[in-house]
Design a protein around this nucleic acid. Sequence first.
DNA 1: TAATAAAATTGTAATCATTACAATTTTGTA
DNA 2: TACAAAATTGTAATGATTACAATTTTATTA
Lengths: 134, 134
Amino acid sequence: MEFTNEELINFLKKNDIRPSNIRLKVLKYLLENRIHPSAEDIYNGVIDEIPTLSRTSVYNTINLFKEKGIVSELYLDDKEVRYDINTKLHGHFKCEECGRVYDFPVTSILHSGLEGFVIKKKEINYYGVCINCQ
Amino acid sequence: MEFTNEELINFLKKNDIRPSNIRLKVLKYLLENRIHPSAEDIYNGVIDEIPTLSRTSVYNTINLFKEKGIVSELYLDDKEVRYDINTKLHGHFKCEECGRVYDFPVTSILHSGLEGFVIKKKEINYYGVCINCQ
DNA sequence: TAATAAAATTGTAATCATTACAATTTTGTA
DNA sequence: TACAAAATTGTAATGATTACAATTTTATTA
Ligand SMILES: [Mn+2]
Ligand SMILES: [Mn+2]
Ligand SMILES: [Zn+2]
Ligand SMILES: [Zn+2]
């Protein structure tokens, strides 16, 4: 999927984020590479277009996106945090063979014992072997 | 809940783990402190009974327990991994106020899009505010 | 029981993702 | 153009976990 600069700018503005060059490139990378990348992945994906880019700026940008609610974090059994531009509820499947992280729809979860608790976020993470690795 | 030394020894033997002093004390701590402790928590909980204990031994022990399948890991939005002696499928609720991690039963999850995938492990993590922190 | 091998434990150093922070550069505005 | 605010950078610090070699404990054999 391709995004125009205007679309990217509007996306950021709508979410109360000033559109700097780095922010636009990171956003573009996240929108066009739905692989749940780590900070390092993002850095490597953007460094060619912004040769002066620092890792710190990637972290700054991601943390800003997080605060503004346009990315969510994935805590899987890696040591790196992964990021997802899709903040709607959905499940994640991590393949133990190839390392890929897949999205899948979650229709409903039946739970009990949380009466009186305020639930703000749900994570559903599966692990196993993906269809390409059988 | 209290566990006798014999129960602890049998628990380890049944899972193909040689019962050393450290392993017994770590197991006892995990069984009697259902707080999803970090490695540091375990270290602090056992150091009084084994003053020569090293952090490395705690990690060694936990990693052995993990390999043998008697503990599971919890990847929440902390920077530390937490451990759970209960390896049966259940959900976890992390309170953003007090930091406590609660267990809750999960009856069913309806998902799609994973035809042909082998699912080996499921994690269900919720975040929010617990009933004691309202 | 003493000798030996195997297993467990320890302490220290290394790793590595992320953050802290101060300096520099860029941007927006008067 | 001049100034202030915001963004970006580079380096150092942090902290959880692992690597590894040395030491201690336990089990096995003669
Ligand atoms: Mn996703
Ligand atoms: Mn639990
Ligand atoms: Zn795979
Ligand atoms: Zn609470």
